[in-house]
Design a protein around this nucleic acid. Sequence first.
DNA 1: GTGATGACATTGA
DNA 2: ATCAATGCCATCA
Length: 121
Amino acid sequence: MDFYQRAGIVCGAIPRGTVASYGQIALLCGKPKNARQVGYALNKGRLGEEVPAHRVVNSRGLLSGAAAFDTFDMQKNLLAGEGVEVLWTREGWQVDRKRYGWKHTMQDAEKFRALFEELGI
DNA sequence: GTGATGACATTGA
DNA sequence: ATCAATGCCATCA
């Protein structure tokens, strides 16, 4: 499904040291309602090894916790390695989206849209 | 085809 | 702020 190709591209475009939400990815893929599919795609490794799946969190900045990584705290460690603060809260491992959230611009969205059209996906 | 599942999001109490 | 209820939609069984 082309949605997964798009998701792969968008995830790969998340800047180092920032995180993006599932909904944000879905939105940039042109499918605002496919947040769940983004998670599904990342889980099965459908997007390939080189895709930085650890930079994707939910709308509240919470890490998945799912063992899609080798160890449970792998995602946290990868983020910490990029300078992202990951805090242990009542909810779980969490990052401050105000500070580390990817603030994509309108131009970014347009760029992706154009790219997808060009690739026909 | 039908129904359950899920790394989600939003809304309303 | 917190929690429950809904909506969502591509996979799978």
